[in-house]
């Protein structure tokens, strides 16, 4: 397929569609808000996917990087009134530094132990940021009057970051680095036997992954104007939801996290708002239930996610044309 500046034609169409999306649908700020949320989850999903989906290191503690990124934007503002917008520079960096130290600890572990180790690290940070009030303002959280009322600037900012993360993953996975990552995922011992420095490449994967998670965190602070340890270091609402976005979309696929984020946000909102106000009120109670059930069904029947198992889905719905995923 012909390529134009790293992306295929199809991908440019999607990007173009995404760039126009906030202007259609009546310019509703509510709808724009949902799109921003989708894109934020795209960044987080991509970040997790690079480490877990491609390198095989399933992190259950991505909230640690997200949270540290958010606080990297918030803490200088809280103490010195330095604009949180600087977080776009410092957020990713802070997460990489944290990732470097965490990596020293958790990369000693394999498989489920790695998962537990990352989970515990995230939880420890959540408690730490809640208790150390002198630095983080504790559970009071840090509030910032956001710069724009319009959502448009935020939308294009996060669209840019999301596309950046997509292109980055795509480029990396086409390079030698990507090959090393995959070899670690498939068989770490074999990779080592081939002379690949697995610790080094795992750390590189973690650094890139944590950079984007930290960037998403900094964006969250700039856009929401509020951080609190229970929100940004949340085990379920950040770490686990990130994983589920990856699972639903497709682990180890370029577009998987993007599709997963779209499905996750819209299914939850569809039910939460009782089908946008036309359904009965009790439907709104079901939003997480439906999403949870979807996760169970997906893992059971479509373990590769929507993108990974796209062929199976196509066949099931009677379409003959089989196409490789983009």
């Amino acid at each position: 397929m012909k390529k134009y500046l790293l992306l295929e034609k199809r991908e440019w169409i999607i990007l173009g569609g995404a760039a126009l999306a906030p202007w259609i649908f009546g310019f509703s700020p509510y709808f724009q808000g949902l799109l921003i949320l989708v894109l934020m989850w795209v960044v987080l999903g991509n970040s997790w996917n690079l480490l877990a989906g491609y390198t095989g290191q399933v992190s259950f503690g991505h909230a640690a990087f997200f949270g540290i990124g958010a606080y990297a934007a918030a803490i200088p503002y809280h103490h010195f009134k330095i604009s949180p917008w600087w977080g776009l520079l410092t957020g990713g960096l802070a997460a990489v530094i944290l990732g470097y130290f965490l990596g020293k600890l958790v990369f000693r572990l394999r498989g489920p132990y790695f998962a537990l180790g990352t989970l515990a690290s995230g939880e420890i940070l959540r408690l730490l940021f809640g208790e150390e009030e002198w630095l983080t303002n504790g559970h009071n959280g840090i509030l910032y009057m956001t710069t724009f009322i319009s959502k448009i600037p935020y939308y294009y900012l996060i669209l840019f970051i999301a596309m950046g993360s997509l292109v980055a993953v795509k480029v990396i996975m086409k390079s030698k680095l990507g090959f090393y990552f995959l070899s670690i995922r498939e068989d770490q011992e074999a990779a080592e036997a081939l002379g690949i420095d697995t610790t080094k490449y795992k750390n590189i994967a973690l650094a890139i992954s944590s950079f984007f998670a930290g960037l998403a965190g900094a964006f969250y602070m700039i856009y929401m104007g509020f951080v609190d340890p229970e929100v940004v270091f949340a085990l379920h609402n950040i770490s686990i939801l990130t994983i589920l976005v990856g699972i639903i979309g497709g682990v180890g696929t370029i577009w998987g996290p993007a599709v997963g984020a779209l499905i996750m946000v819209f299914i939850q909102e569809l039910f939460r708002s009782s089908f946008f106000g036309v359904g009965p009120q009790w439907v709104s109670q079901l939003h997480s239930l439906v999403f949870g059930a979807l996760v169970v069904v997906m893992i059971l029947y479509l373990a590769g996610g929507v993108v990974g198992d796209w062929d199976i889905i196509r066949k099931k719905f009677g379409k003959k044309r089989v196409e490789g995923q983009g």
């Binding site: 399933v58 994983i243 079901l286 996760v295 169970v296």
Partner: peptide, 30 residues
């Protein structure tokens, strides 16, 4: 059923328990 299944991540069963947990919590909430 996940035991013998081929999947990219061996952690699929763990993620399944996450899904089951979510369903149980939300059922209780409803």
């Amino acid at each position: 059923p996940l035991m013998g299944k081929d999947s990219i991540l061996p952690e699929n069963q763990v993620l399944m328990t996450v899904g089951i947990g979510m369903v149980l919590v939300e059922l209780a909430r409803v």
